[in-house]
Amino acid sequence: MILTVTPNPALDLTWHVDRLTLGETHRADAGAVRAGGKGLNVARVAHAQGASVLAVSTAGGRSGVELAAELGASGVRHRLVPVVGPTRQSIALVDEALGDTTIVNERGVNPSDPEWATLLGEVVDALPGAQVLVISGSLPPGAPETLLPLLIGTARDAGVPVIVDTSGPALLHAADAGASVLKPNAAELIEATGITDPVDGARSLIERGVDLVLLSLGADGMLAVTASEVLHARLDAPLAGNPTGAGDAGVAACAVLYADGIRDPETILRRATAWSAAAVLMPLAGEISDDWPALEQRLVVAPYDPTVREDPL
């Protein structure tokens, strides 16, 4: 089973407009509403691909009621901890003319210490049946610095590897606490480490004890960095679409392989890059195209050469 934790879930609202113009009024058809947040997107993708999943998160206020209802309808097995603070909302405006997506993310409300303790209890109860723990997404402002280390340490004590996709100081806390895999993007890596070179930045996380860093490079594909090698995966031609949720699909691929006992960096990189690309072809986060096997066949995988710049994803 893949156990996912989403510390800062969101009710995702998506509208499509003909063209987004600053300062103007826009009309749109009814938007899509779904339970979101990076960890829930990971759970959706893994569940849709046939993996056993349990998603743990929080829900509060009217938006939390909507999140719980939509997640229940999705078929993803879940446990939601009731909290007093309202679940944040994430608004995506898709410009149909340009193919661009503008996103506004609320920061979220920090649960109380007893509410965090309840969430930790749900994780502890579920760990005996888990093959991998995924902690994914931002932390609400004011969240305790001990949260990620406590979740990671609890999983490690239970013999469960941990995949973390987060940003800021939390990324370093996850590395120091013993996460097996980290999946930042290039901007998040620089923000956390202060190192502009992507390989040096990733290697600084490896030196803290991480086994594998999957580094999203946006249009340049993805890197898999370990203590001994750096591999680069990219598509053979550009791919247009909606990049929202692409990173979450990559994390889902890694989690599915980890749950099956697969640790080979190249295998993980190929699947993560293919699922990320397949997510770009879908209108909403938490989904991937059924064409992902064909995309995986199109990948170019080689040792990383920073002088080569392509524009695949």
Rank of each mutant, 00 (worst) to 15 (best):
V5Y: 02
D12S: 10
D18W: 01
E24P: 04
E24T: 14
A30I: 12
N41T: 00
A43W: 00
A43T: 07
H47G: 00
S52W: 06
S52H: 14
A59Y: 09
S63C: 13
G64S: 09
E70P: 03
G72D: 12
S74G: 13
H78M: 08
V81F: 06
L93K: 03
D100R: 11
N105T: 09
P114W: 11
A117R: 12
L119W: 14
V123T: 12
V124Q: 14
D125W: 06
Q131F: 13
L133K: 09
V134N: 03
G137W: 05
L139H: 07
P144C: 11
T146G: 11
L150Q: 15
T154H: 13
R156F: 03
A158V: 15
G159F: 06
G159W: 04
V160F: 08
P161S: 12
V164M: 12
D165L: 09
T166W: 02
T166Q: 10
S167T: 14
G168K: 13
G168F: 10
P169D: 15
A175T: 03
A175H: 00
A177G: 03
A179S: 14
P184Q: 06
A186L: 15
A186C: 10
A186V: 14
E188A: 12
L189W: 10
I190H: 15
G194K: 11
T196W: 07
T196N: 13
L205D: 03
D211I: 05
L214A: 02
L215D: 01
G218Y: 06
M222R: 03
L223A: 02
R234T: 12
L239W: 07
G241C: 11
P243F: 05
T244D: 02
G250E: 02
A253F: 02
C254I: 00
Y258H: 10
D260T: 01
G261Q: 07
I262F: 05
R263P: 01
A277R: 00
A278K: 01
A278M: 00
A279N: 04
L281W: 03
I288T: 03
I288Q: 00
S289L: 02
D290V: 14
Q297I: 01
V301H: 02
Y304D: 07
Y304P: 02
P306N: 11
